[in-house]
Amino acid sequence: MDIKELLREVLLKDKTFIHLPFGDGKYDIYESVVVMWIIMAIILVVLLILTRDFKVHNISKRQAAIESFVVWIRKIIGGSLGEKGERYTDYIVSVLLFLGAANMIGLLGFIPPTMDINVTAALALMSITLVEVAAIREKGPVGWLKGFAKPMAIVLPMNIMELAIRPLSLCMRLFGNIIGATVIMELIKMVLPVVLPVPFCLYFDIFDGLIQAYVFVFLTSLYINEAVE
């Protein structure tokens, strides 16, 4: 199998998972959505196990760990969101945890949903919606519209373009990184299927996945922080 075939297989593979009998494939549910359901189910179960019987006193180590984790991650995300954007912390943390899980789901043998551009596009759409909603809530519709002409009227087209560029870059960055990692992993497996993939797998599936999740979330919170300033 040469590289061309490999790329074709990775990039153009039929990703339909549930084929609906109507609409001529237009309403097919992709594998990424199904994997996302699996991730959601895993997260739900893990959360239910981790957060059961929380107490105020005499807490278990598990509860202490969960509490300090939540406080810690909220501090990090809330710090980059700024004071005014702090109310969006919980959504951002949710996205971060989901992306972390999604990028690492490859460890369990699933195809990461973030390898599907539809998922990253949806995430980016949510992010940009949140950014603009935050701006409108903070400044009012008029103030939001006026914000496009700041600091000077000449930057107006750029700011309008940014509305499209930001989500596009978010979406493509995440998608490209994950698919790139997968392609490289496939290539490494072609070179030597034993031993060699282990450190790279550790890097691409765990480290890189977490970094990309953090980058996505960090940029989103940065945009929100900028929007509400």
Partner: peptide, 27 residues
């Protein structure tokens, strides 16, 4: 892998909202 599908994007958005609710409620 590269074509957009509106249905799937909407599905993912709904999934994300549900996931957010799960995190909010249970964490």
């Amino acid at each position: 892998m590269l074509e957009f599908s509106l249905v799937n994007i909407i599905c993912v958005i709904v999934n994300l909202l549900i996931l957010y609710l799960i995190f909010k409620k249970f964490l």
